[in-house]
Design a protein around this nucleic acid. Structure first.
Ligand SMILES: [Mn+2]
Ligand SMILES: [Mn+2]
Ligand SMILES: [Mn+2]
Ligand SMILES: [Mn+2]
Lengths: 219, 219
DNA sequence: TTATTTTGTTAGGTTAATCTAACTTTTTAT
DNA sequence: ATAAAAAGTTAGATTAACCTAACAAAATAA
């Protein structure tokens, strides 16, 4: 059985190595940054994870999850996203509140709890941020979606997710009345810096940065 | 903010000191036994709890919760019992499965989570074992109930709780088809050892020990 | 290709929470 | 009133997870 801490490391490795499209290799410093720890601490833990055959890592080399490690990590992500869905759907938490609590709940150890929760929620495919919820067998459903920053001028679509879960971002969305299912049309794009002008629902237009647009998923 | 471990100690002190009717004082060894730890470990932690003004304890003396300590302990019990109710009512866990998982869930830190859970469950007054769920202000509703072992011969009543939450006990209940709300009539009592003959629901009679009977609450 | 920067490792410490073994104080029984 | 038993304490170790500071290797730039 893995400790709370080990689970957090594995999840961080998974997220770093599978963020974006391709499968990247992860380094000690990078991991330390994402876990808000010092490289020395991470280095120490990596040894333990290697001994437990959860990761592959040669001295001065990059980190990869073993099959076993990936299964564990995906399991934590599954729990995290199911709990987020529960908090959002059942307990009516707002979009930007679910993550912090799910960060704790994801470590509860009970197979039955998770399978019953999944059943209770009616086997959701995505969490409140639009991220896919891994199945019990570890398969992660494909969620087809494009970044808002890549939608052509004049086209529109429905918000199906976000790529940033920080509360500043989510609160900004809230202020703009953008949520899951909101229809957005790209009215215009500024070549200079990639800013885009949007119509949100049927409201008047707003301009947002490319950074912002690249964190909104349209499906 | 208290650690997982500190919360478990406070809860154990609360349970030991307020088990049964009167308010008893608790000792180091007793506490060690109930937490499945060694007295030396408990002794060490008691110092920290005292420093944090959560308990009162003089050298070689007994342990009592301070006001602050009791509030914390009751808070943990509230969370434990709300989660047990959730597992039982919402996720259809069985009577004897809820405790173990609630033991973990009780440590999740989020005021909002608990108040929303309470609301979702429609403000239950008792948990699946018939134990009262403390209110947010720390008040514990009185649940009027008598031990089955004290019911007079010929009388009957409804099961409203249990005093033992071990899984051997709860599984025995399950086997006897005794659950919350079951009607039980005391048909006969053996003077020699306090064993009682019961009719459970409208089924034929069974004989149970006094020990067993003293752990079933009739209201 | 050498110097600089970035990345990763090692050594040595700290804190929380546990343990065993030895000791002291208090309580209970004779 | 003493001896034995029970209850509680202390000392010293261990383990997981973190830290800082110093160092070594690898990657990058001049
Ligand atoms: Mn976490
Ligand atoms: Mn999410
Ligand atoms: Mn617990
Ligand atoms: Mn209970």
């Amino acid at each position: 059985m893995l400790s709370y801490t080990e689970e957090n490391y594995l999840k961080a490795i998974l997220h770093q190595s599978e963020s974006g499209e391709a499968v990247r290799e992860v380094g000690t410093n990078e991991l330390a940054l994402s876990l808000q720890l010092k490289p020395a601490s991470v280095n120490h833990m990596l040894k333990r994870l290697k001994e437990k055959k959860l990761i592959l890592n040669e001295k001065y080399g990059k980190i990869r999850l073993t099959k076993r490690g990936r299964i564990q990590a995906v399991g934590v992500v599954r729990k995290h996203r199911l709990w987020e869905t529960f908090l959002f759907e059942t307990l009516r938490f707002s979009w930007d509140e679910v993550h912090e609590v799910a960060e704790q709940l994801e470590h509860i150890q009970s197979e039955k709890l998770i399978s019953r929760l999944d059943e209770f929620l009616n086997y959701p495919r995505v969490d409140p941020h639009g991220d896919p919820i891994p199945r019990p067998d570890g398969k992660i459903p494909k969620v087809s979606a494009r970044h808002l920053s890549l939608i052509e001028t004049g086209q529109s679509g429905i918000v199906v997710g976000v790529r940033d879960t920080s509360s500043t971002f989510l609160q900004y969305l809230e202020n703009l009345s953008i949520r899951m299912g909101t229809r957005i049309k790209v009215l215009n794009r500024v070549d200079y810096d990639g800013s885009v002008e949007l119509r949100i629902g049927r409201r008047t237009s707003v301009v947002v940065s490319e950074k912002f647009a690249s964190n909104v998923l349209i499906g």
